[in-house]
Design a protein around this nucleic acid. Structure first.
Lengths: 237, 237
DNA sequence: CGATGCGTTGATAACTTTCAAATTTAGTGG
DNA sequence: CCACTAAATTTGAAAGTTATCAACGCATCG
C-alpha cells in the first residue's frame, strides 16, 4: 500500500497551485492539462474495461485492489444508508481517477452512469512501481491531496442552502464542461439531488427558480445554460 | 515572503498577551501509542509556542509556511463566510497535527480554543527532510490520507439530520476522549453548532432531547455522559 | 396505443432557524 | 465569601426552508 514514498511536498504545491487558480475567462480542459507520470503508468499497466449503464464497477466493503480512470462515459460513486437514502460521493468524468482507498476496502460503491470505458490498474503493481519511481509516488500523493481539496469544497457546499448548493453545482459542472456556459448534464435530477443532499423536488424547484430569475436557461432537462454567471458566483459565496 | 513576519508577529502578540493560566484538564495524548518518524522529526525540529485563549495561530489566506502540532490545550480552525456565519473546520486536541496545506496558502484560520501550547515546525525544513528520509514523506502522506478520511466522515455527517449530527459528534468526541463514556467538552455550544452546521439553539434543544430520551446526561454544560451508546450508535447510521 | 420512467408542480407536514426572553454559569471586585 | 455584571445556555413562539405525499405532463419504447 504505502510503499516508500520519496517526494517533497514542494513539488506537490507547485503542481496544485496552477490548478487552484483557474483563469477567469475560460474553464480548463476536463481534468487539468499535463498527463503526469502516474497517468502514463496507468495507461501502460492498465486494461480497459467496458461497463454498460448502471453496471457495478466495484462495491462497498470490497477490497480496493484496483485504481480506476475514466476513459469515456461517466461513473458515480455512492453509498446507500440504512434508511434507504443514497448519498452520491462524486461524479467521475473522462480523465478522472477514482477508487483510491487507504483502509484497504472501498468505502463507496461505483456504478457506470452511462455506458463507460474505464482503465483498470492493479493497485499492488502501481505501489510497487511507486517504490521504485518517486514520480509515481508523488502522483499518488498529488491525487490524494486533490481529493482532499475537493472534499473540503464539498463540506463547504453542504453548509449552504439549497439554492446555493444548486448554484455551486452548476458552476462546478460548467468548470468541468468543455463548452463554457452550456452544460450537458450526464446525470439525472435524482443523482444531482443525492449528490447535493437534497430531494429531487427541491432540485427541480430550485432550477425553475433560477430560470425565473433569468440566471439560467433549461432548454432540455439534461442541458443547462448559464445566463448570469456573476449572480451565480455571488450565490456560491 | 511576508508570511514569516506575519506569523511571527502573531506569535509574539499571542505569547506576550498570554498570562499563564491553569490549562484545561486534558490528559494523555489522544491518538495511538506509536509516535511515527514524522512526530519525532517535528519534536526535534520544532519550537513550542504558547497561545492564550482566542489568540490567532494563523489566518486564512496567509502562506502556509509551518506545520503545527498541539501539545496542550485545543485549537480550532474556521472560516468566516460572507454572510457572517462561521464554519468550524476542526477541533484539534493534544497530539493532533494541523495546518497542512497544498495550495501554499491556508484555507482556514486557526485560533486557540483555550490557552494552548503548539509545536511549530517550518514546512520547508520538513520538506527538505522528507526529500532525504522516505519515512518522513510517508508520514506526510499518511497524514494527508487520514485527513481525507476524516473529511469523508464530515461529508457523511452533513447529510444527516440535526439529531444524527449531534449524536455523531458526541461519539466522535468520546472516541477522542480518554475517559470512556464521560466527555469533557473543550468547546462551547456555539462552536459545536458552527462545526455541525446548525444553530446554537438547535444544538441545545437536541442535547436536551437526548437527555430526555435517557441517552445522555449533562451534569454541566461542558460535561456529557453517554448513557446509551447503542442508541447513539444507531443514530449515527 | 398503453406502459414506464423521468421531471415538474402543488399542498401539506416536518424540521430548523430566527427572534425574544428567561435562566444558569462564570468572572470580577468589594 | 458574597454580590454583581457579563456571558453562555436553555426555552418558547413564530417564521422560513426543505421534505414528503400526490398528481400531472411528457417523453420513450415495446
Amino acid at each position: 500500500m504505502l510503499s516508500r514514498i520519496a517526494i517533497t511536498t514542494q513539488a506537490l504545491r507547485a503542481s496544485s497551485a496552477g490548478r487552484s487558480v483557474p483563469p477567469m475567462p475560460r474553464p480548463a480542459p476536463i481534468d487539468s492539462g499535463a498527463p503526469g507520470p502516474l497517468d502514463q503508468a496507468m495507461q501502460l499497466m492498465g486494461a480497459v474495461m467496458r461497463f454498460s449503464r448502471n453496471a457495478e464497477v466495484f462495491g462497498e466493503d470490497e477490497p480496493a485492489e484496483y485504481l480506476y480512470k475514466v476513459v469515456s462515459g461517466g461513473v458515480r460513486t455512492y453509498k446507500i444508508h440504512d434508511d434507504g437514502r443514497r448519498q452520491i460521493g462524486a461524479f467521475h468524468l473522462p480523465g478522472d481517477i477514482f477508487g483510491l482507498e487507504f483502509g484497504g476496502k472501498h468505502t463507496l460503491s461505483a456504478e457506470a452512469m452511462s455506458d463507460a470505458a474505464v482503465l483498470v490498474v492493479k493497485r499492488s503493481a502501481l505501489d510497487a512501481l511507486a517504490g521504485r519511481d518517486a514520480s509515481i509516488a508523488q502522483g499518488l500523493f498529488v491525487l490524494t491531496s486533490r481529493q482532499l481539496q475537493r472534499m473540503q469544497g464539498r463540506v463547504l457546499l453542504l453548509f449552504k442552502s439549497a439554492q446555493e448548493r444548486v448554484a455551486s453545482f452548476l458552476l462546478e459542472m460548467a468548470e468541468r464542461s468543455p463548452a463554457g456556459d452550456s452544460i450537458e448534464l450526464p446525470m439525472s435530477r435524482q443523482e444531482i439531488a443525492d449528490y447535493l443532499g437534497l430531494t429531487i423536488e427541491t432540485v427541480s424547484r430550485t432550477l425553475t427558480g433560477l430560470q425565473c430569475a433569468a440566471m439560467i436557461e433549461v432548454p432540455t432537462s439534461r442541458c443547462i445554460v448559464l445566463r448570469d454567471r456573476p449572480a451565480l458566483d455571488h450565490m456560491n459565496g
